[in-house]
Simulated assay, not measured.
Amino acid sequence: MAVTDPVQRILTSAPPRASSFIVTIYGDVVEPRGSVLWMGTLIECCARHGISESLVRTAVSRLVAAGRLQGERIGRRSFYRLSAAAQTEFRQAGQILFSPPSLPADWAIALSGDPLPGWVAFGSGAIAPFRAGLVLPAGPVLRAATISGANDLPGFAAGHWPLAEVAQGYRGFLDRFGGLTPQRTQGLADADALALRLRLIDEYRHAALADPRLPQDATPVDWPAAQAHDLFRDLYLRLSAGADRCVGHSFADSVGPLPEATPETRARMKALSR
């Protein structure tokens, strides 16, 4: 029989990919609470989503090999912390998810050189949305504004960035989570609230972090990014009281239980509330 309740349909759906979901757990729960987690907690949390212990251990080993996690053993227990590089990466991703900056209005155009991350090839050089912190290639770089032909910009952008795939990700997220009305999420058990929040952020972040965040006049008129972020923000705020209580009751690091809330988690909630 098909599951009709949207909450249970999400929680009983196919397991997420282990390595991706572990990254989600660390980004959502662990990074703002000290960046360390007991392996037993990780195994238990993933089991709730149909991910086996063997898959968790394999995924953790790969994350260690990739330099994103660092392990330590205390007695018979293993703990894993985010590497310094991963902490920086997670904080940058967290800004996009929880406190996204305004969309850029201008473009950066490099007259020569190979594209860097965030840039795409353009003629003999590269082009990127101009934003604070953009890493500039060597050689001349111009800051440009649109002065004509704005109607042709969406077609140009679609030929240089994977906008169709990003839009599909956003729309899939909206279809999957759009039925979670306040009535549907009212009275959830704390463990279900956390499980649902982890699924929420695991799916939303794939689209949001792939979004090149182009100037608004370069995206299609039906671009779903703002609608998807509004849904993400609303659900994250609604689920977090119960989810954070569950974290405080059932997550542990090498010292003891993780705190229910920290200044970092409160800052996230404040940013989303704005």
Rank of each mutant, 00 (worst) to 15 (best):
L55M: 03
V56W: 10
R57M: 13
T58C: 00
A59R: 01
A59S: 10
R62P: 03
R62L: 05
V64H: 06
A65L: 02
A66W: 09
R68N: 11
Q70N: 02
E72R: 09
R73Q: 04
R73Y: 00
R76H: 12
R77D: 04
Y80R: 06
A84P: 10
A85L: 10
A86T: 05
Q87A: 00
T88V: 07
T88F: 00
E89W: 03
R91T: 00
R91L: 13
A93P: 06
A93W: 09
G94W: 05
I96T: 12
F98I: 08
P100A: 01
P101Y: 05
P101R: 06
P104T: 06
A105T: 15
W107T: 13
W107G: 13
A108D: 01
A108E: 00
I109A: 03
I109C: 08
A110P: 12
L111Q: 03
S112W: 01
G113D: 02
G113S: 06
D114M: 15
P115S: 14
A121K: 04
G123M: 01
S124E: 02
G125P: 09
A126Q: 13
F130P: 05
R131T: 03
R131V: 04
P140I: 09
V141I: 09
G149M: 07
A150T: 11
A150I: 12
A150F: 09
N151M: 13
N151E: 14
L153E: 13
G155T: 15
